[in-house]
Write a protein that binds this DNA or RNA. Structure first.
Lengths: 193, 193
DNA sequence: CGGCCTTTTGACCCCGTTCAAACGTAGTGG
DNA sequence: CCACTACGTTTGAACGGGGTCAAAAGGCCG
């Protein structure tokens, strides 16, 4: 409901990789399967308020109102799309564009649930967390942030940063936010030849 | 039903990133949403036989037999787990371990649907496809494969390779296949304190 | 035999890592 | 109010994994 969290995995070497950033409004562990298995961890990045929903309640809602089921399916589609976008980001973009692309995604996701336009530009991430998200080292993230700062695209203080020039970041990283808004296409309308 | 395929994205620069490898038995585009949106592509890596299932048929099945619904949910969980594993792989492993880890995953996935033990060790991938899967260059994949070959862990010929020493690859990459077999925990058994 | 694609090789370079130390800036307790 | 501590940020120097570019070699198929 408020605050940021992250899903992560640890390697035997001690390295950490964040596999999801959970923003206010995001679902997590909907089917009660993820946490139960615990081959991954979830941690709060800031103080967090969380709503627990009883599985029975979800199931009941889905039966009562089919729109709920569709909405949940849509959510998991978006979640998958984000994971794929991260793979592309880590596989085929350099550090500078990679960082910029992450910030663009966060901006877009935040403004979908809190379209105030203001608060959606501050990210409470440490440089180490950014590094663990993007497969970089904290040291190099620091240098990338200095670069972005020198271009007046962001400002940063201890434990967080603010986006100043979103359009600039988008151009820099080739960001296209379409993957965050999959059109919900009624299944019935699709025919197989 | 047979043959290999891949989901991929192209960047303006011309770079390609493969985001999923589709093996025989894998589902793809179940909800008819992915292909319809087409912010990504799907391509066959070998000659392929595919089964189309009408959305209505799926929906009907799900209503008739709840086990089908559970099975589909399980599939999408595994799909997500694989995406997360790839993120970890690209973010926190070096090229050698990265390649080895991919091969371990493929072996495990193949043996889940075709437990013959033999065919599950040949992968019809070109070095360029491996590179586009792991965020590397074909040149460097070539060098990694030479390394693995010199350790007698694989053999490779034009357009494909065969795993010789699966255990060696697992040890090398720190592979743990648990993420491919999420235990299906009945929701009812989970209580919220 | 000729063309195309995949694999291989070599040389050079650079992006990002590694290691280490210094530097703020909260927060804590006396 | 002032040490003292802890954590995040910053800096520098040196290293190295993997990229880049270019050309050659080797299969496969028509």
């Amino acid at each position: 409901m408020s605050g940021w969290a992250a899903r992560y995995k640890l390697l035997p070497s001690g390295a950490r990789q964040i596999t999801s950033l959970l923003l206010p409004g995001d679902l997590c562990d909907l089917r009660c399967t993820t946490l139960a298995r615990m081959d991954q961890g979830i941690m709060a990045l800031t103080p967090v308020r969380v709503a627990y929903i009883l599985p029975q309640a979800i199931n009941a809602l889905e039966r009562t109102d089919p729109a709920v089921g569709h909405a949940l399916a849509w959510c998991s589609l978006v979640e998958q799309a984000i994971l794929r976008a991260w793979i592309v980001n880590m596989g085929r973009r350099h550090a500078l564009e990679r960082v910029a692309h992450l910030f663009c995604e966060l901006s877009e996701r935040l403004s979908m649930t809190a379209p105030d336009g203001q608060g959606s530009r501050f990210y409470p991430l440490t440089q180490e967390e950014i590094a663990d998200t993007l497969g970089l080292t904290p040291v190099h993230v620091n240098r990338v942030l200095q670069d972005l700062r020198s271009r007046s695209m962001i400002t940063s203080r201890r434990g967080g940063l603010t986006v100043l020039d979103l359009v600039g970041l988008q151009r820099l990283s080739g960001f296209n936010g379409a993957y965050l808004r999959p059109q919900t296409i009624p299944v019935a309308e699709l025919a197989i030849a």
